[in-house]
Amino acid sequence: MSYIQDKVVIITGASSGIGKATAIHLAKNGASVVLASIDEDGLKNVVERINQEGGKAHYKLVDVTVNEEVQSLVDFTLDKFGRVDTLINCAGMMLFSMWDNAHVDEWETMIDLNVKGVLYGVAAVLPHMKKQGSGQIINVGSIAGHAIGEGHGVYSSTKYAVRAITESLRKEISVKHNIQAVLVSPGVIATKWQDKVTDKDVKAVLEGLNEVAIDVDYVAETIGFVVNHPANVMINDVIVTPTNQKW
C-alpha cells in the first residue's frame, strides 16, 4: 500500500539538488507537490518535467528566510489543494570555512537559511496540521549535524540546530497532535556544493569528497521511504551516506 499517493507535499529548495530529486520522486509515486525556491527558472523546469510525466506540480517563488513568504507558500498550497500533508524543509546552504578567516556574511546566510528557514516552515504549517490531526514535517539535516570536522564549524552548528528543532517537535508536538517530525541527514552528495565554497584555506578539507559522493536520487528515495508511512508510524532519524565516507 502506498501512503505517498494523493499526499499534498510542500518542498523548499526544490529547484535543484535534493529538493528537485525528491519532488520528482514523490510526484512519480502519486503525490501532489508544491515546490518553492528563489530560482524561478529552475522551478519551472522541474514543474514542467513532472507535469509532462503525468504528475501534479505547482511552484511558488519563495525566499524561506522571509517569514511572510513562507506563510504565503502555505496559503498558496491550501488554495490549490485544501490541505498540507507533508512539509519537507530542504532549502539550505553549506559553506565551509576556517574560523581564522571570519566569513561572517556567510555565517549569517547559513543561519538565516538553514535555521530560520526551517523555523518559518514549521510555524506556517503547524496550525493546519494540528487542525487536520495529522501531518509530516521532514527536516533535511546533515551528517555534519552529528559529527564536526575541520572547517565545518558554523555549518555544523546550523545542522545541530535543525536536529534539536526536530527532536523538540517530537517531544512537544508529535505525541500530542499525531504530527510526525523526522530528521533526514545526508552525507556527501553530488550536488556541486563545493563550487560555492569561497574560503581557499578550506579547499584541502574538500579534496576527495567528490570521489565518494553519492547521487541525490538516493537521498530522494530515502525521503520517499519516510513519507510512505501511515500516520501512526514515525521514522525518527535517518542518516544516508556514501559507504566509504570517513566522517
Rank of each mutant, 00 (worst) to 15 (best):
D201I: 01
K56I: 13
M93K: 10
K7H: 07
V212D: 09
E167N: 12
H58V: 00
F96I: 05
T243F: 12
V182A: 01
V47E: 14
I235P: 00
N29R: 13
V140T: 07
Q180H: 13
W247Q: 13
Q5E: 14
L87G: 13
Q136S: 15
G17F: 08
Y120V: 04
V9N: 04
S156L: 06
P242W: 05
I239E: 14
V184E: 01
E150M: 12
T12D: 07
G121E: 07
F76I: 12
L206T: 12
V188G: 08
V64T: 15
P186Q: 13
S37K: 04
I235V: 15
P230T: 02
G30K: 09
T198V: 11
A220M: 10
G141K: 08
V34D: 00
D63H: 10
M98T: 13
V33P: 15
K203S: 00
V47M: 10
L206G: 06
V122E: 06
E221V: 02
I214G: 02
M129P: 15
D201F: 12
V9Y: 01
C90P: 05
T77Q: 09
S2M: 01
D79E: 15
W107A: 07
D215P: 09
V216Q: 05
K80F: 07
N210T: 05
D201Q: 14
G17S: 10
D75W: 01
G187I: 08
H146N: 10
K246G: 05
Q132D: 12
Y160F: 15
V70P: 14
C90Y: 01
G117A: 09
V202K: 06
I235H: 04
L78G: 10
D6T: 14
N178R: 15
S97M: 07
F225Q: 03
V240Q: 08
T222I: 03
V34N: 01
G92Q: 06
G42F: 01
W247N: 12
V125N: 02
Q194H: 07
G117I: 01
P230N: 01
N114K: 13
T12F: 13
S142G: 12
V84L: 08
N228E: 04
A57C: 07
H177Q: 11
V154C: 13
I143P: 04
L43A: 06
D63I: 06
G133A: 06
V162T: 09
I189L: 02
D201W: 10
I189E: 05
I38A: 00
I179L: 06
S37L: 03
N29V: 03
K28N: 14
Q180P: 07
K60D: 00
T198W: 02
T166K: 02
V46W: 07
H146V: 00
